[in-house]
Structure formats: C-alpha cells, structure tokens
C-alpha cells in the first residue's frame, strides 16, 4: 500500500469516531474520568502502585537481605522470633526476616503477572483475531482449541506442565500464560467478528489494505478496552495460581522468597503457635489480588460502553 493510500484509509477509518465525539474527549479520557470517580477502583490502583513500588525498590525498602540467615550472626534468638520492633513480621526457622521476604516476594508475583499476561496476550490476541477475521475452518479449529483448554481444570493443567520440569520462574509464567490465553482469545474473537463488518473496515479493504494491516491497524485498536479489563482481572488469578503452585511445592527453588512457598514452609509452625511465617505472605497475596480485582471491576465499569448511561 502506498503512502497516500494509507493516509486515505486511516482518514476514512478515523472519520466516523471523530464525528461522533464531542471535542477533546476520547474514549480513554472518558474512561479515566469514570474510573477516577470509582473509589474502590482507585483503591485497587493504589494497592497495585504500592506493590509495584515495593517490587522496584525492594533493596531500598527491605530492612534485611531476604535470604540472609540471621541465626549465624545473631544466634538462636533470631530463629522464629515473633514480630517485634526489629522484625515487624517476625523471622522464620532460618532466622530470615519475614518482612523482607514478603517485600521481595512482590517481585516474583508481579513478574509472573506481567510476563504470563504477555504470553497469554500474544497467543490470545493473535489466535482470537485470526479466528474472528477469517472465520470458517480456521475459526472452527481455534474455537475447538479454546474449548479443549477450557475443559481442563485450570490448576491441574498448569501443574501437569510445571511438575516434571526443572523449577524456574520462566517455566511458571510460560505455563500460566499458555493456559490462560483462551479467555483473551474469546474476547478478541467476539469483538473482531462484529468490527470486521463495519464500514471503516470495508473502506480499508476497498482501498486495497492487506489483511494483516486491517487486523493490526484498524481492528485491534478497537479491541483494546475489553482486553485491558480481561488482562487486569486475569493478573489477579495468575498471582493466585503461582502462589498455589509454590504452595504445593512446585515451580520455585527453595531460597526464592515466593509467597506461596513461604506459606507452605510456615504451615507446620502455624499449628505450634508461630503464625507470622504463614500469615503475612498470605495477607500479601490477598491484598495484591484484591488490588487487581478492584481495578479490573472498575475498568470494566469505566470502559464498557454498554453500562454508559
């Protein structure tokens, strides 16, 4: 497609939306305005921002090294010490500071959430767009694939991928992403199905735009909003899945401060009264997942034009 053709097709594509909108208010500005009014969503955003801050600045924020075993320097007193001024969240069996481990744990959880989302986005958007755009046999095949993956209980599927392979963070997020793409593909497919019939797509085709260009330049930008909602809500369940995996003892190597793994290690001691080892990582998981759920719910309300009264 030549330059002026492209300019023409994008001008054609932009026209209908430009005509509809009052000046200076895009879908995104509108969405943000609605989102800002939603106090719970803002709380969710705050929680996620806070956790991200902790993850990025963990070495500065954490009072101790997360894998340093203080029993070697401070003696037995550092073993399973209850919460105190020195150790806000207490210490574990090896004299490691639980607060520092929880802070470093944000890195793992957020990495999983982001990386697994990227994996599921790449697969889900591509397959969903292809299925919706081309239809026919290709759509049948991809829809069948979606149904097959949906037929597995989620955690079982991830466990079957992760359990027999050497533990690594990469494996965990690839596995989680690989199992969670169908929900994104479904959303994208549905949206593409309806958008491909619109006039601006027809116009783009009329000026000779290639399929690839139509899908990526004209159709996908209109699918972003529902995908964002899906991804945000999905991140919460990805963090939960990672925690479940490591709780069962799969997916992480021992000194790594993963929240699920910490809960697993501390569970025996919970019964003998040393509750802090398991309770604080669990709180961290709950808070983070709550943040994503609140923000996801808020985004859905803010970006879903059907609810726009």
């Amino acid at each position: 497609m030549s330059k002026h053709e492209m300019a023409f097709s994008s001008a054609v594509a932009k026209q209908p939306s430009a005509a509809k909108e009052p000046k200076g208010r895009s879908l995104w500005a509108d969405g943000w305005r609605r989102l800002r009014k939603n106090r719970l969503a803002m709380l969710g955003l705050f929680i996620i921002a806070f956790m991200t801050f902790l993850a990025v600045f963990a070495p500065l924020v954490a009072p101790y090294d997360p894998i340093e075993q203080l029993i070697w320097t401070k003696g037995k007193a550092a073993r399973l010490a209850p919460p105190s001024k020195e150790h806000w969240f207490g210490t574990d069996l090896y004299g490691r500071d639980v607060l520092s481990r929880v802070i470093y744990g944000t890195r793992i959880s957020l990495t999983i959430a982001v990386a697994a989302s990227v994996v599921s986005l790449v697969i889900g958007v591509t397959l969903g767009a292809v299925a919706g755009y081309y239809g026919g046999k290709i759509d049948d095949f991809i829809s069948w694939l979606i149904n097959v993956i949906y037929a597995f209980p989620f955690l079982l599927f991830v466990l079957s991928i992760v359990a027999f392979r050497p533990a690594s963070l990469t494996l965990v997020y690839v596995a989680i992403g690989f199992v969670s793409w169908p929900s994104i593909a479904r959303v994208v497919r549905g949206q593409v199905l309806s958008i491909k019939e619109t006039e601006f797509v027809e116009a783009a085709r009329a000026v000779g735009a290639k399929d690839f260009g139509i899908i990526f330049r004209h159709i996908l930008p209109n699918v972003i909003a529902p995908v964002i909602v899906q991804v945000t809500l999905g991140m919460g369940s990805m963090i939960m899945t990672e925690a479940s995996l490591t709780f069962l003892g799969f997916g992480t190597q021992p000194p790594t401060p993963s929240w699920g793994y910490m809960i697993n290690q501390g569970r025996e001691y919970l019964l003998s009264g040393q509750w802090w080892w398991s309770v604080f990582p669990g709180l961290a998981i709950s808070l983070t997942v709550l943040g994503f759920n609140l923000l996801g719910d808020g985004l859905r309300d803010a970006l879903d034009p059907r609810l726009n009264k």
Partner: peptide
C-alpha cells in the same frame, strides 16, 4: 465477599 475472592483458599484453610 471481595476478600473471599481475593484470599487464597489454602491460606484460608490454614487460618
């Protein structure tokens, strides 16, 4: 309900 959705079930069990 919101907390019930966000907290891991195995952790609730332990609590």
């Amino acid at each position: 309900a919101l907390v019930g959705i966000s907290a891991p079930s195995f952790w609730i069990g332990l609590l």
